[in-house]
Design a protein around this nucleic acid. Sequence first.
DNA 1: TCCTTAACTGGCCGGCCGGTCAATTATGCC
DNA 2: GGCATAATTGACCGGCCGGCCAGTTAAGGA
Lengths: 206, 206
Amino acid sequence: MIARRDPEATRKAILDAAEEVFLDRGVADATTSEIARMAGVTKSLIHHHFGSKDALWREVKLRRFREYGDAQRTMLEESEGPPGEQLLRDSMEMYFRFLQANPEMVRLLAWMYLEDDSDCGDLDRDLTELGVDRIRQSQTEGRFRDDIDPHHILLAFLALTQHWFHFRDPFLEDTGLVGPRSELDEQFLDTLLKIFFEGILPRGNA
Amino acid sequence: MIARRDPEATRKAILDAAEEVFLDRGVADATTSEIARMAGVTKSLIHHHFGSKDALWREVKLRRFREYGDAQRTMLEESEGPPGEQLLRDSMEMYFRFLQANPEMVRLLAWMYLEDDSDCGDLDRDLTELGVDRIRQSQTEGRFRDDIDPHHILLAFLALTQHWFHFRDPFLEDTGLVGPRSELDEQFLDTLLKIFFEGILPRGNA
DNA sequence: TCCTTAACTGGCCGGCCGGTCAATTATGCC
DNA sequence: GGCATAATTGACCGGCCGGCCAGTTAAGGA
């Protein structure tokens, strides 16, 4: 039974609708009327619960980002033990899987970049630290080459994964590669790990 | 001396202003009045020369994309001879330099992705083909490992470079890395080449 | 020189958007 | 059962935006 008045559910409905519209068309192009219609509420109710369009956008971002941060943190902490090649391979695959399952996150990051957003800066900073520490540890243990700044390794890691989900579709159109998308994802994941860990030169002639 | 009427110059002024405003705030958030003001013309003149706001945005994209395509093509054709590691290293560096000198291109690509644009699909397709052919040739000559789809190599190449310019600034803030930006660019270029060609594992234990 | 063409202007309009407000109705606490 | 509180509604507003139009002025070929 649905309560006739359920503010918590209403907030959620609004946030869900807002996320969909905002991520699809951008904040500027989205209208509160449309969000209200999609959420099945009145426009005024949005202002009642969130104050303004911008504040609503902010809430949408924070919600997703918290979820994202939690997933990442769980990922890193779940996989305890000495970080080595296998662990980082697993982390990379887990990150890949996460974006695969949450394509909205990719669009969210893109929008935030374009409006150079800093609302979620703190959340992001912590995450970065965690990842960098892991990599640095691997370096001191001699498992990774230590002539590269660990921050750069992390950035490359994120770049390869995010970029795939960013440009996968137009890229596939351009190249004429065909097949079920999930299979193409697997193929790229394989490539990604090969390049990231081993590079594109044949082994044995370095 | 400026001619009192110079339609060509006017078109350019409008395009320049439009590019700045569009790339800065996005199409939806940009207003024709602002573009007109910045270009020093009347709003009506924009419609006279370009028809509509969307058509203007389209022209902006095409102009930049043609320039981008020309630069890329020149890059690839200028460096004739058998493609090998050094050539691809050079190509990669040239691409890095290009984005370094044209940060607008990075934002343009981001906007186009978010509104899943297809206006410049043809231009992009040709470019992709050229790059892929080069890589494939290197593979058949045994200079690159051939167990990776050349399309994926190209994507990784673009990912690492574009991502740096995408997220350089927020990334630097998060990590607390400091120094003149040009120097940080050099450092990352170094990293990028190392990772892309050799991977992050220490050599000799593959 | 004249006349067609096109560059250019200022004023205007319909429409929609974000936001407000006063009124109504359900909720939960005492 | 009342009563404060908050959820919810629909009507409404000022403002701005993209686009249009009627008119003016320069350019350039015949």
